[in-house]
Amino acid sequence: MNNYMICLDGSTESDRAFAWIEGIALNDPSKQIKIFLLNIIDTKPIDKLNLDFDHDKKICAEKGLSVYANRLQLNNIKYETILVETYHSMRETIIEQAEKHNIDMIILGHASKNKLKRVIDGDLRGKIATYLLKHANCPLIIFK
């Protein structure tokens, strides 16, 4: 079984990454691909702003994951959804999930973000992609 994990955040880049891995899975004659759909809700920045958007973020994340899951299900592609709420680093959470699920490749959409967008997305210490390139124990594909 080939396990691929795609990090989804609703961006155009992650949509393109999903379309790519979906195409790979559709054209796999062995049908041995399993796609793990990962969405992380980072609650740290919200707490710092003293706002309570966690519930809305979770509902939005669940709806987003279900859209991708439905596409895979319609095409008979094996998948698993992973929704993680964390106060820890998003970068480290991605690595933890990859190790936990024996992921063979991580797929990530990457867009340039200003400082406010990084705070909202929980990328406070810098680029997630750069961290994953240095710390992931499996190959990483980045879509821009």
Rank of each mutant, 00 (worst) to 15 (best):
M1F: 04
M1E: 09
N2D: 14
N3P: 02
N3D: 11
N3F: 00
I6Y: 06
I6Q: 03
C7I: 12
D9T: 04
D9W: 02
G10A: 05
T12Q: 10
T12W: 00
E13C: 09
E13T: 06
S14Y: 08
A17W: 00
F18S: 01
F18R: 03
G23Y: 01
G23I: 02
G23C: 01
G23H: 04
I24D: 10
A25F: 04
L26I: 04
S30F: 15
Q32P: 02
I33R: 10
K34S: 11
K34V: 09
I35C: 12
F36H: 15
N39D: 08
N39A: 13
I40W: 02
D42E: 06
T43K: 14
T43M: 08
K44P: 00
K44A: 04
K44S: 02
P45T: 01
I46L: 03
I46M: 05
D47A: 01
K48S: 06
L49D: 02
D52V: 03
F53S: 07
F53C: 03
D54P: 00
H55I: 14
D56K: 13
K57H: 11
K58F: 00
I59A: 11
I59D: 09
A61M: 10
G64T: 06
S66T: 07
Y68I: 01
A69M: 11
N70T: 14
N70H: 14
L72M: 04
Q73L: 07
Q73T: 10
L74Q: 13
N75D: 10
N76I: 04
N76E: 10
I77Q: 01
Y79L: 11
E80H: 12
E80I: 07
T81F: 03
L83A: 12
V84C: 03
V84H: 06
Y87N: 13
H88M: 04
M90K: 13
M90G: 00
R91I: 00
I94G: 02
I95M: 09
I95S: 07
Q97G: 02
E99G: 13
E99H: 15
E99K: 15
E99C: 13
K100P: 02
K100E: 13
K100T: 09
H101T: 04
N102P: 08
N102R: 13
I103N: 08
I103M: 12
I103K: 05
D104F: 03
D104T: 14
M105L: 15
M105T: 15
I107Q: 05
H110G: 03
A111M: 12
S112Y: 09
K113A: 08
K113S: 05
N114S: 06
N114R: 08
N114G: 12
K117P: 00
R118A: 04
R118V: 02
R118K: 14
V119H: 12
V119A: 11
D121N: 10
D121V: 04
G122C: 03
L124S: 08
L124M: 12
L124N: 09
R125P: 00
R125Y: 04
K127T: 10
I128E: 02
I128W: 01
A129K: 14
A129L: 07
T130N: 15
L132S: 03
L132D: 01
K134E: 15
K134N: 15
H135P: 00
C138S: 09
L140N: 05
L140K: 12
K144H: 11
K144Y: 08
